[in-house]
């Protein structure tokens, strides 16, 4: 009996691990933009160029407005590590170099996902990231190639 119990427990435990993995694999967050942005897909390279603030305009010539959560936010940490393949401190020093040499601007920091959602939905040219629970029809979700 106890072996069955134990195996059940292990089975459930393994399932549980897979569930977590499944969510991770499908990403618990997405890269999102204002619905007016024409681009439907972004390459990882373009995504890096946007978030390191080198690429300033969309293909139609409009401003790109980049929104991020604070450096110590868990979602920001996952996004920078998984999508940009850098650590938040590296991204911060890239932005600082641009700002304090005058050769670029920093992204706009928002302090919650609610704020991120409202900025993305209401700012033409805006790009950011959100956990899937916050994503609705008012914003556009990118496919990342």
């Amino acid at each position: 009996m106890s072996t069955i119990k134990t195996s059940c427990f292990f089975f459930l435990f393994i399932c549980h691990l897979f569930v977590i993995d499944e969510v991770r694999a499908n990403e618990y967050y997405q890269i999102v933009s204002h619905p007016g942005v024409n681009e439907k897909t972004l390459s990882a390279n373009v995504l890096r160029a946007i978030f390191s603030m080198r690429m300033r305009t969309w293909s139609n010539g409009d401003y790109i407005k980049v929104f991020v959560l604070p450096d110590n936010n868990e979602l920001h940490l996952d996004f920078t590590k998984e999508k940009l393949n850098v650590f938040p401190y590296q991204l911060r020093s890239v932005w600082d170099r641009l700002v304090f040499s005058g050769t670029g601007q920093a992204p706009i920091t928002v302090y919650s996902q609610e704020e991120m959602l409202s900025k993305i939905a209401n700012t033409p040219g805006a790009i950011g990231y959100l956990t899937t629970t916050y994503i609705n029809d008012e914003i556009h979700v990118f496919q990342i190639k």
């Binding site: 373009v46 160029a49 080198r54 690429m55 300033r56 293909s59």
Partner: peptide
């Protein structure tokens, strides 16, 4: 002034 800008 950005004279040329094409993605990256």
């Amino acid at each position: 002034y950005r004279l040329y800008s094409q993605e990256t």
